[in-house]
Design a binder for these strands. Structure first.
Lengths: 194, 194
DNA sequence: TATATAATCCTAGAGGTCCTAGGCAGGAAG
DNA sequence: CTTCCTGCCTAGGACCTCTAGGATTATATA
């Protein structure tokens, strides 16, 4: 009997595709085994448990997205870079909804460190080079960007913007404009005009 | 045999508590039946399926949070209202992590309409009365606020801000300052300064 | 080449969850 | 008192997770 050639990498890839098709919560070890033409128990020599599957998808997605963002950012600066960054993020979520939801699973410290999470924050910081911000404002700005972009895409994917005439695309453009303005006029000292 | 007194409302409440204790993904019909001293099959006269449980928790959480936000907003305006609103949201997520994740499940249109989702967007709009914005800018601003606040809280809960010296509270304050400034200087026409 | 080692896959099975079908009993309405 | 409805039951099928131990295949070493 020829071997099926199951690898942890191919397993993660297949799990990611399955997640995009049927949603992350329906990604199951059994179904994956079925797709590899193998018994479910066989996969436990590659995996510790079903949860690891989700973690692998998360790590995979983080790395894929980091690559895309890096490509989108190449040769751009300022608002141009900001928009390219944000669109890379949003487009990825639209193409790969399962992978995107996987990215939100909590990673244990070691896995997080080994993941592309650091690349993400580094690239976000790189965008801020177009705006003059020093620590700790830079970190705060990184968090603002991450929060707003992630939040918008999350809410959009959850259907939060669907039942309203105003299109999500228009709002998205406006949100990015606003972020750009906010970064250029960063409140250096506490905002306290009457 | 005395009846257990299971109600859909008590069921939703218990599910919400369970979600906060063990995470939404571990909320199970069987465990809930156990807590009510009843067989799991008995609950299916109250529920259509396990998914309905999560939907019920989401609706419950939406309503609870709307009440809190309404209370927080009473008698406040401008930045004061903005901060109260945002803190109500963040505090709720900290107290009730399971309920908070439940709020992100996709609701079908009818359920969504019957939920407190509308109250949420109305209250967000109310905040904007302190800033002078007209449609469609108002909708865009509502979405900006929702996205940033939701995104920040999501990332914080997922542990995104944990392994960095800068405290999340400080960043949170700065993010709210920035939102306030952004709303006051809303880019009415496309931002295009060289 | 022969053999040891390790990796891949198997069967068997325990235990958990979801959900359907059909039955019984206790309270309410006639 | 009878009838009906409702809340709960038992029984059971289908699926999933994961463990234990055995068999087979590939690889490294003598």
């Amino acid at each position: 009997m020829a071997r099926a050639g199951v690898t942890i990498a191919r397993l993660a890839e297949a799990a990611a595709e399955l997640a995009d098709e049927v949603g992350l919560e329906n990604v199951t070890v059994s179904e994956l085994a079925r797709r590899f033409g193998v018994k479910d128990a066989s996969l436990y020599s590659h995996l510790a448990n079903a949860h690891e599957l989700r973690v692998r998808v998360a790590v995979l997605a983080l790395a894929e997205l980091a690559d895309r963002v890096a490509a989108a950012l190449a040769g751009r600066a300022g608002k141009d870079a900001l928009v390219a960054f944000a669109n890379a993020y949003r487009d990825y979520a639209k193409e790969h909804p399962g992978r995107f939801t996987a990215m939100q699973v909590e990673l244990d410290p070691e896995t997080a460190k080994a993941s592309a999470a650091r690349r993400h924050s580094d690239m976000t910081r790189a965008i801020l080079r177009g705006y003059s911000l020093v620590e700790p404002d830079q970190t705060d700005a990184v968090r603002l960007l991450g929060s707003t972009i992630h939040g918008f895409v999350s809410l959009e994917q959850a259907g939060g913007f669907r039942h309203h005439p105003r299109g999500a695309d228009e709002s998205w453009g406006r949100v990015l404009d606003t972020l750009d303005v906010a970064l250029r006029n960063w409140p250096t000292h506490a905002a306290d005009p009457t």
